[in-house]
């Protein structure tokens, strides 16, 4: 096993703020309100090595100061998602921004009915890296990038950081070894929405109302669910989304804006949440609770489903027989922010 791994661990980002040891460190009186960082990002890798022609999963891992949040890449009333640019050695390819996998966010409604989809505490955005067929065994490549994101509490500030990681090329017979950060990537992957196929989801588009029902006949184990819909950036406009994208029970009635000329289909993530079970030792759920409200986490994400409901041609108000739930690969919310 010749694989070796050198991680940049975001030290460059920390170094920009001398004297502040990192997240949660008690800062000295800041000269300016943006002199103290509220979040950090570092590049992590799942496996210490990759075979020639193979793919290794990278992650942009963010840690966020309690009370602050960053943004999902789907639609929000305010804010903007992280963007990053990378330098790669010749032949190596990173997934295009729309191949990045963004974990399911939490819903956040601010004063004035401002509806956002956010990440709190920590999040890892998954970015696949493909090695060229001709990569030499034993070679170690360095991936360098820069990321920029908005972090908000009441107020918002832009922050940025340097992303760096190294990956070694291993032989055909070598089994790439998981790194110490593999668990972070696994946790993120568990929160990435799955495609709608086989998920017991039904969607009916009738006129300007799309009714989505999930697990219609399933028994509610562990409390009544709450379903929420998080629209992707290219989702058709929604009417009164604050009131219609979250409901207890198994169904949602979304109202769509048929005058939206730019976007036709309903696209986004359907999340099924359950009350947090407080039994000692009970963990359940994917990667902890969501929808935290001042520290009172009440619901956990049970699962999340990528939804794409095609708009009927000639909307007549009749039921769509097809229902049209599908989820072509990891498409869904387009990544990388809107330009």
């Amino acid at each position: 096993m010749t694989a070796s791994l050198l991680l940049g661990v975001g030290t460059a980002a920390v170094a920009q703020v001398p004297g502040i040891p990192g997240l949660g460190g008690v800062a000295v009186e800041p000269k300016r309100k943006d002199a103290v960082r509220h979040s950090q990002a570092r590049l992590i890798v799942e496996h210490a090595g990759v075979r020639a022609g193979g793919t290794v999963m990278l992650g942009i891992h963010m840690t966020i100061e309690p009370g602050w949040h960053t943004y999902w890449n789907g639609r929000s009333d305010s804010g903007t998602p992280l963007t990053a640019e990378f330098e790669l050695p010749a032949g190596w390819a990173l997934g295009a921004p729309d191949e990045w996998q963004w974990p399911t966010p939490a819903r956040h409604v601010g004063e004035g009915d401002i509806l956002d989809h956010i990440y709190e505490e920590a999040v890892t955005i998954l970015v696949p890296l493909k090695a060229p067929e001709g990569a030499k065994v034993g070679e170690t490549v360095r991936i360098k990038g820069k990321a920029e994101w908005l972090v908000c509490k009441e107020a918002c500030v832009f922050e940025d950081g340097t992303l760096e990681a190294s990956v070694a090329v291993v032989g055909e017979k070598d089994e790439p070894k998981p790194t110490a950060d593999a668990a972070l990537i696994a946790a993120a992957r568990a929160r990435v929405p799955v495609t709608g196929k086989g998920e017991n989801v039904k969607a009916v588009w009738a006129g300007d109302v799309v009714t989505i029902t999930v697990d219609k006949d399933a028994k509610d184990v562990g409390g009544a669910p709450r379903v929420e819909f998080y629209p992707a950036a290219d989702c058709i406009g929604l009417v009164e989304p604050v009131y219609r994208t979250s409901a207890s029970g198994a169904s949602l009635r979304l109202k769509v804006d048929l005058s939206d000329t730019e976007r036709r289909d309903l696209r986004g993530v359907l999340a099924v949440l359950r009350p947090v079970v407080t039994t000692v030792g009970e963990t359940g759920g994917i990667g902890g609770a969501v929808g935290t409200d001042g520290g009172k986490a009440s619901m956990r994400l049970e699962r999340s489903i990528l939804l794409h409901v095609r708009r009927e041609s000639g909307v007549t108000g009749e039921q769509s027989p097809a229902g049209g739930v599908d989820g072509p690969k990891q498409e869904g919310p387009s990544a990388g922010g809107r330009k």
Binding site: R107, V109, R226, Y243, R244, S248, G249, G291, S298, M299
Partner: peptide, 21 residues
């Protein structure tokens, strides 16, 4: 008031963040 309200949140008093019936 959006009519959607009457179709959802039946008997739910938990007032999940974001729900203002």
């Amino acid at each position: 008031a959006p009519a959607g309200d009457k179709d959802r949140g039946k008997g739910d008093k938990k007032a999940e963040k974001g729900e203002k019936k």
